[in-house]
Design a protein around this nucleic acid. Structure first.
Lengths: 187, 187
DNA sequence: TCTTTGTGGTTAGCCCCCTAACCATCCCCG
DNA sequence: CGGGGATGGTTAGGGGGCTAACCACAAAGA
């Protein structure tokens, strides 16, 4: 589950040292990037550790929360494709997630009548109950994890992260052609 | 590979809305956490996209870089256990990583003579060459990804991320007993 | 109408990560 | 010297992610 990287991040002096051998290495960029991955990893680990006690993963929880949000509303026509899109995973992955959720009795999967290609996924009562049982602690855990940061620090953090994320999206948007290296070169 | 979460993060108003139903939900904490995971995910995706062209993953690269650092030096006695520890993965995972690296001819795995339990993993010439070919672009990519941030912003970011990471470690350290929920409650 | 194209869902095959269990070997200590 | 641990490496089994390929069906165009 971890995104993996070095457990003990290299110290800044080591990065400076390595930069001598690799002129392209930008020490502060490297440091920021490694810390980003590490913090994300550790944070995810904390949250997942709790969910694991209920035999739930981030992916499964995401699916259930999406269902809770929308299936509770007016439109109960929610199929794997839309779920996959909302969760940001492939349709094949969503099939697997729904498989296990269905096996555990947390969701149902029924063929739709209007469009015979479609399946309709819906939370069961058991799934809804489990969510009510898990979510409060889940939210508490997130709040606790962020508790060292003041309100204004959180705002700053979100702003910085957003810049990175924008840049990343900019890459994936232009990565289809071989234009990516060019974009790098010009940067 | 993504750590997975919702593709489109909920807007802040939605979090406020949800907080009415779940009093434990701290909107700013939640927002910060989701942005952290997302930025980490997207960043990792960018870096991995390039590595994938050379049939390399973050895990494989980490192993090779550790080997480059230490095997190039004086002590060539580097086994899976130490590698696993340095990379922050389980020994079983490291076995798998070395398997594929060895299959691709990037590392060798030979039994040690002094300690007959040990295997010695070493970069091959091919592995070394591949690293020299990959790393410059890899570093450029990281630098490009962080280019929207000024030097001082990067410093700020590292500081904030470190606070979160400290907190996370604090959790995993005390999670062996059931003390974790208590720690949450008191927070 | 009939064909073509697009879309929804699943399957197959691969990779990576984990835990638990298993041998082999080393090392310490009685 | 001999019998525990401790340590190194692998295997087995389970998730979860991806792409590519497939079939069923819907929708749009000739």
């Amino acid at each position: 589950m971890p995104h993996l990287l070095l457990k003990n991040l290299p110290r800044y002096e080591c990065l400076l040292e390595a930069a001598k051998e690799f002129p392209d290495l930008d020490p502060s960029a490297c440091e920021a990037f490694l810390n980003l991955l590490r913090a994300g990893d550790e944070g995810a680990r904390v949250v997942e550790a709790e969910l694991a006690r209920h035999n739930i993963t981030q992916g499964r929880l995401a699916v259930m929360m999406i269902l809770l949000n929308r299936c509770g509303g007016d439109v109960p026509t929610l199929g794997p494709a839309e779920l996959a899109d909302a969760a940001g995973v492939s349709r094949a992955t969503m099939t697997g997630l729904i498989d296990t959720l269905e096996r555990d009795g947390l969701v149902t999967r029924d063929p739709a009548t209007v469009d015979r290609r479609m399946m309709i996924v819906c939370l069961t009562e058991k799934g809804r109950t489990l969510l009510q049982e898990i979510l409060p602690n889940h939210f508490k855990r997130m709040a606790w994890l962020m508790s060292p940061l003041s309100e204004s620090e959180r705002h700053t953090l979100v702003g910085l992260l957003d810049k990175i994320q924008q840049q990343a999206v900019l890459y994936t948007a232009s990565s289809l052609p071989t234009a990516a290296p060019a974009a790098i070169a010009t940067a």
